[in-house]
Design a protein around this nucleic acid. Structure first.
Lengths: 238, 238
DNA sequence: ACTATGGTGAACCCGTCAGTTCAATGTCAG
DNA sequence: CTGACATTGAACTGACGGGTTCACCATAGT
């Protein structure tokens, strides 16, 4: 069987690519059984996000996505009709994953303990980490970059990330306000302001994500934001 | 005479080419009748930004830029060597124009009068108007969208817009702090926080610029930001 | 062993578009 | 008038890439 067509089997199996990029799921090896098809679909979606994040939409070619997924090009089209569908599904999955991470961070405000400032600083740092990691950055970038082509994706992504995060944070701040640990205020506005104080300076420092920001620097940004936030929204002196 | 037409491929971008299109002009148009002595190069750069803003980089074709400028395609290549050069020059000019507008807004803080809050609200509203108008939005969008292809443009644009604005604002805040009208603080951080409080909520409301935000709503955002800012950075009660 | 299912590589069609060439035209300098 | 030169429309080249087709193959379930 060593005919010409089999002679190129020395291609490295890039099948073990990081599926964790989008889904955060463990890279369950693709047993080529009944589940093979599902694994492939997942691998393709993961690879799509990876490549789109690397090249941008128009520069990413389906061939590269196929290679990244360790799959042939026709297989890609077999699972997802075309490039646009690929893009939409990949972004939506990534948005969902980011959302989960964000909500997990905020949840820590449910029991802030005695030291509210410390709790806020902790949550702030975690949110910055999530908001500025590679996946999150790529997601925002891709969405923003393709406004002209897919304007509806803004709504899809925004609702799953910023909006959901702001709402969850507002919930926690409302409780804190009611408990007298923050002054009486509009919790939605307070949440918006806290998030702005965090992400705004962070984006400036990272030059829209192109420059690496150290953990210490991130902590500084987080603490400064919390300080300003507490000056503005902390409990009234009575 | 336009003797430099062919020879300026590598000419420095010296003259900040005023991208008039950004100032709200509508496809100004070198009308074919007036084909005498208009500066074609200017028209081409204006048209380039207009079309890039409309379609994005890769979707914009040089043919359309030529038509927008009222010029033939070879003429475009006669003035600017290729599409990339077109893009870089157009963006840089737009950044320069946005910078000028931003600095003009901040300059109003030089003599804030008796009512600091009112002065800040006025300046905040003006900055929001500048930061969120069509030209500014298109500029940020294009820069962000082409990070993968032209990573260096981030630096070019950022330094002329965000950074320059933040510095100018920090200058004014430093004076106010020294005059006892704000508490003692790091002016750079204060400026960063004020800008974040303004642009963050604004971007959320406008869905990254896709939704129109009314003047009244903009005012609300500005006033809320100033309120929070003054609570955090206002003069200490002593 | 047989067949069905889905995967595979390679070639292919086709549209788009950057960048070029060219002959013709318009405009000015002298 | 004439020559120099920018400009123009149109046609052309070459690259690139989305999407399809097809003949072939590998494995699973029977």
């Amino acid at each position: 069987m060593g005919s010409d067509c089999r002679s190129d089997r020395f291609k490295t199996p890039t099948r073990a690519v990081q599926c964790a990029f989008v889904t955060g799921m463990t890279a369950s090896a693709g047993r080529k059984g009944a589940r093979g098809r599902i694994d492939k679909r997942q691998a393709i979606l993961d690879a799509a996000f990876t490549v789109f994040a690397r090249r941008g939409y128009s520069q990413a070619c389906v061939q590269e996505i196929a290679e990244e997924a360790g799959v042939a090009k026709p297989t890609v089209y077999n699972h997802l009709s075309d490039k646009e569908t690929l893009f939409r599904h990949a972004l939506e999955a990534a948005a969902e994953a980011v959302s989960a991470d964000n909500l997990a961070s905020v949840e820590r405000l449910r029991d802030p303990g005695d030291d509210l400032r410390a709790a806020l600083e902790d949550v702030a740092y975690r949110m910055l980490r999530v908001c500025c990691d590679e996946r999150s950055r790529a997601l925002r970038w891709l969405t923003y970059a393709q406004v002209a082509r897919f304007p509806d994706m803004i709504e899809v992504v925004q609702s799953r990330t910023s909006s959901r995060l702001a709402e969850a944070l507002a919930d926690r701040l409302a409780r804190l306000s009611l408990a007298g640990r923050l002054r009486r205020c509009d919790p939605a506005q307070a949440a918006g302001h806290l998030l702005a104080l965090l992400t705004g300076p962070m984006e400036a420092r990272s030059l829209l994500g192109t420059r690496k920001v150290s953990a210490a620097e991130t902590r500084t940004v987080a603490n400064a934001a919390v300080d300003t936030f507490l000056r503005a929204y902390g409990p009234e002196p009575r």
